[in-house]
C-alpha cells in the first residue's frame, strides 16, 4: 500500500560527510556493482562504449563550488542517493502500490513486479533519486542495500551498505536515526547534520554534514613568527650556482622600477 506508515520502528539511513568526501566515485561504482547483481532487475547501461553513454545508477556524485563573500572558493563533492524520506512523496503518488516505505525500518523500496514504469514517483522525488531503467522499464532506486544489512551469509563487517563499506574516506555512515545513541544520531548532533531542500517538507532521513570552514586569506598562522626565512642570501655552492645561472640570458628580471 502506498499509504505512508505513521511512524517506523527504526529509521535506517546514511550520514554523508561533505567535509571528508574526496569525490572519488568509489561509492558509485560499488553501489552499481552490488545492486546490478543482487536485489531486483540489473542496472542496465545504454551505449556504454558508444556516443552519449547512459545507464542506471542509484548513487551519483556531484561537485560544487561554494564561494563565500570575499573568501576563498571551496570545492564540495556531493554524493546523492535516496534519502529515505519520512514524508516520501514518491510513495504516495504510486498508482500500483509498487513503491512503499517499510514500517519496520523506514526503508523506501520498489516492488519491481508491480511497477508499471509510469515514472510518476521519479517526478515526485525532488532529489533525482529514482531512475527508470531503460532496459527493464521499472523504477530503480537505492535500497539501502537491504540485501546486505540483514544478510547473515555475509561476515558481520560487510553487513552495511556497499557504498559505506567501500568509501575510502569514511565519508558515508550507516545507522539508525531513531536511536539517539547511534553513531549517525551522534554525528548529526555534533556536526549539525542538514536536510536537503527542507522547504519541501519531505523530512529526509539521510543527513549531510557540512564541510568544515577552511582557512581564510586574512588569518595568519600562529606559527608564522617562527617561520622567518633562515637564509636571505644564498651561500656556498648554491650561491655560486645562483650567480652563474643569473649570468645566462633568459632570466626573469627582478630589477626594481623596471616594467
Amino acid at each position: 500500500m502506498t499509504d505512508l506508515p505513521t511512524s517506523t520502528e527504526k529509521k535506517l539511513g546514511l550520514v554523508i560527510d561533505l567535509d571528508t568526501c574526496v569525490g572519488c566515485h568509489a561509492c558509485v561504482i560499488s553501489c552499481k556493482g552490488w545492486n546490478t547483481e543482487n536485489y531486483g532487475a540489473p542496472l542496465s547501461d545504454q551505449r556504454p562504449y558508444g556516443e552519449e553513454p547512459m545507464g542506471t545508477f542509484l548513487n551519483r556524485v556531484h561537485s560544487y563550488e561554494v564561494k563565500p563573500e570575499g573568501g576563498a572558493a571551496q570545492t564540495v563533492h556531493f554524493p546523492k542517493s535516496c534519502l529515505h524520506c519520512e514524508n516520501a512523496p514518491c510513495v504516495t503518488v504510486c498508482p500500483t502500490g509498487a513503491s512503499y516505505k517499510r514500517k519496520e525500518d523506514g526503508i523506501v523500496l520498489v516492488n519491481e513486479s508491480s511497477c508499471i514504469g509510469c515514472g510518476l514517483c521519479a517526478w515526485a522525488c525532488p532529489y533525482g533519486a529514482r531512475e527508470l531503467d531503460q532496459a527493464e522499464g521499472v523504477m530503480k532506486k537505492c535500497t539501502l542495500c537491504v540485501d546486505r544489512i540483514y544478510n547473515e551469509n555475509l561476515p558481520e563487517v560487510d553487513r552495511v551498505p556497499a557504498c559505506v563499506r567501500t568509501c575510502p574516506a569514511g565519508a558515508r555512515h550507516f545507522g539508525d536515526f531513531a536511536d539517539p545513541e547511534s553513531n549517525v544520531s551522534k554525528l548529526t548532533a555534533e556536526r549539525g547534520g542538514m536536510d536537503l531542500m527542507p522547504e519541501l517538507n519531505t523530512a529526509p532521513v539521510n543527513k549531510y554534514l557540512p564541510p568544515r570552514l577552511k582557512d581564510s586569506w586574512d588569518d595568519e598562522s600562529v606559527l608564522a613568527p617562527f617561520l622567518e626565512p633562515v637564509a636571505e642570501e644564498t651561500q656556498g655552492f648554491m650561491g655560486w650556482l645562483d650567480k652563474q645561472l643569473s649570468r645566462l640570458p633568459g632570466d626573469v628580471k627582478q630589477t626594481e622600477g623596471a616594467e
Binding site: E52, F57, K67, E69, G71, K80
Partner: peptide, 29 residues
Amino acid sequence: GTATGLGDRGEVRSLAHPHTSPNYLMREF
C-alpha cells in the same frame, strides 16, 4: 543553496556533473 544545504556559506555553483552525458534524469526533467 537549499538543495545542497550550503547556501548560507556563500554562492554555490555546479562544477562538474556526476556523468559525462545526459542520463534519464536530465532527459526527463
